[in-house]
């Protein structure tokens, strides 16, 4: 009797989970594809090839790549500091790493404007740097602003993957290597890195996936369509354009994002699989 009722419970749970996923994920994704192709393949191709779409794609990719690189380096450093050393303020650093998770991205965007905008307190400093270097870098309403906002929002992803791995590894192997005269860099390269390799890759994928889809923070600091828009902003603009054509275009560009997300998902699964297999 008990076995049967637990079997029923099991199938109920599975059923609910499947229904949830279908409703919240699968159905909307299919809807996107369906609406994207509503006007036929040619219109789909035109939408993807439009100047504004390509510009948005370029900005999204640029922001993602830079965010991933910067966050990998700083994520590694921050994780290393937090796990290998004991210092005052270690807990503060640990909390700071997680801040982008807890605050709304829109607030991050607004904070950027408050800091680097024309009326921001850091503007004179930025002007000074610009004068000294002879450049014209703007940190709001520009592509650098988009990049910075993306970096901020995706920062914790890599640290969070690496920190548990570094903790689990402990200091023994590194001490053994240090005893034999290995330099810090050698220790990192030969002993630490192989251990965190898959976690790092996983974090990179998560970071990239998040960067693709960032809307709130970027929306606050990017206003020029065809110049500083990312794909999500471009989709919003197409949808707001209101005509039946532009809505189909909005879905077409959305399907592009969906495609990128699916690629990330597949990569993530591969990494997870390889990581488990190589788990030593």
């Amino acid at each position: 009797m008990e076995e049967r009722s637990s079997k029923i419970a099991k199938w109920c749970l599975i059923g609910i989970s499947v229904a949830f996923f279908l409703l919240m994920l699968i159905v909307p994704l299919f809807e996107v594809l369906y609406r994207a192709l509503a006007d036929g393949l040619e219109a789909y191709g035109t939408a993807l090839g439009a100047k504004t779409t390509l510009s948005a794609l370029k900005v999204t990719l640029l922001a993602t790549v830079i965010a991933v690189v910067v966050n990998t380096v700083f994520g590694l450093i921050a994780s290393w500091l937090v796990t290998k050393f004991d210092f005052r303020g270690k807990n503060v650093l640990s909390t700071l790493i997680d801040i982008p998770f807890s605050i709304s991205p829109v607030i991050a965007g607004l904070a950027y404007i408050m800091t680097f905008g024309r009326t921001g307190w850091a503007k004179p400093l930025l002007d000074g740097i610009n004068e000294a270097l002879g450049t014209d870098i703007a940190l709001v309403f520009s592509v650098p602003a988009v990049v910075l906002a993306t970096i901020f929002v995706t920062f914790p992803f890599i640290s969070r993957e690496i920190i548990p791995l570094l903790y689990a590894q402990g200091r023994d192997e590194e001490e053994a290597a240090a005893m034999m005269g290995a330099s810090g860099f050698t220790i990192f390269r030969k002993i630490t890195f192989p251990h965190i390799r898959w976690g790092l890759l996983y974090g990179v994928i998560l970071c990239a996936a998040r960067a693709f889809g960032e809307f709130g923070a970027v929306y606050a600091v990017s206003k020029a369509r065809g110049k500083t828009f990312t794909l999500p902003l471009e989709i919003d603009a197409l949808y707001m354009a209101g005509s039946a054509d532009s809505i189909t275009q909005a879905f077409a560009v959305s399907s592009l994002l969906v495609g990128m997300a699916l690629i990330m998902l597949i990569l993530k699964n591969i990494v997870e699989y390889r990581g488990k297999r190589d788990d030593l």
Binding site: V73, F74, D136, I137, V143, P144, V147, G184, F185, F188
Partner: peptide, 28 residues
């Protein structure tokens, strides 16, 4: 040795990031 390594990496990354942003920022 570890601290020296960290300093170097931080500086390098900052430089790289600034260069990248300057290039993108010089859009006008």
């Amino acid at each position: 040795k570890k601290r020296g390594f960290i300093c170097k990496t931080v500086c390098f990354t900052l430089l790289a990031a600034c260069t990248a942003m300057a290039l993108t920022g010089c859009g006008e």
